[in-house]
Nucleic acid binder design. Structure first.
Lengths: 151, 151
DNA sequence: AATGAAATGAACTGTCA
DNA sequence: TGACAGTTCATTTCATT
């Protein structure tokens, strides 16, 4: 029901490089007709393997030049505490990503701000006032690279 | 030269929710003709604000159910050490993201593996043998949520 | 300078064999 | 799966504001 053949894998690999390619262009690379390629894409989407396409924004050009990763330790960790924290943190617009993790921290947040002064405002007024927050650790992003990942 | 008006912002916001929408569909939401919408998208792309579209893969359905974040401290931090480390780490297929950061760690890596046993193999054979690696700290991903971010 | 209308070509999407 | 056909979309041209 969810077995992938060689062609599916090549399709995903090609789409990972450029998600805007048409079914026809992909088909030419894979020696497949356009409808056949299109049907494979639709099948992978309906199976949930292809979960969609995300817009890549250059946040620096939009005036958000500072990205900071925050490791957050909660002071209290009951179920209610986790729910409360998650509900409050997802309401902060500057929080781009909320990762619930196991290890030295309970949550890892990706926060974007216009500059360091703006980040300090977010940290003091928004993050440190979240319910149940204990220790917070920060890492400022210098540069990042995305890789296609295994397959 | 790179000023955005209300319509541009609404366009980016709408595309952030679903990056697969056509220019016609977007135009109907924004009360704009299809060519006008299309031209705005192209302009935002040529200015680099819209940097592309990334495929969202359900890695769990692809058999990669384990995601771990690694904080890496380098033992030596000269320019050559950073270059060597980055070159070696980007060659590991299981490494999905390499973030160069300032703070408690020098690098943060997002690593994906089939299971915990597979992750241990990657950690021992690939990560711990990277040039210049000092301390390594791990956080296992339980769940994550992406947010559109400010604008 | 940016828009909308119209026109063209390419891509998508369903049907049939 | 491929071939076909109808529909929608992307892209250019042009006249208008």
């Amino acid at each position: 029901m969810m077995e992938l053949d060689e062609i599916d894998r090549a399709l995903i690999k090609a789409l990972s490089k450029d998600a805007t390619q048409s079914a026809g262009a992909l088909g030419r690379k894979l020696d497949l007709s356009q409808p056949a390629t299109w049907r494979r894409i639709k099948r992978l989407e309906s199976e949930g393997i292809l979960a969609g396409r995300t817009l890549d924004l250059d946040r620096e050009k939009l005036g958000f030049g500072v990205t900071v990763f925050l490791g957050v330790k909660l002071a209290t960790k009951g179920r209610v505490s986790l729910d409360d924290f998650e509900r409050a943190v997802t309401a902060i617009p500057e929080v781009q990503r909320v990762e619930h993790v196991l290890g030295m921290y309970d949550y890892r947040l990706r926060v974007t701000a216009r500059d360091i002064a703006d980040f300090e405002r977010v940290l003091r007024r928004r993050i440190m006032t979240l319910p149940g927050v204990g220790d917070v650790e920060a890492n400022v992003l210098l540069s990042e690279e995305r890789r296609p990942g295994p397959l």
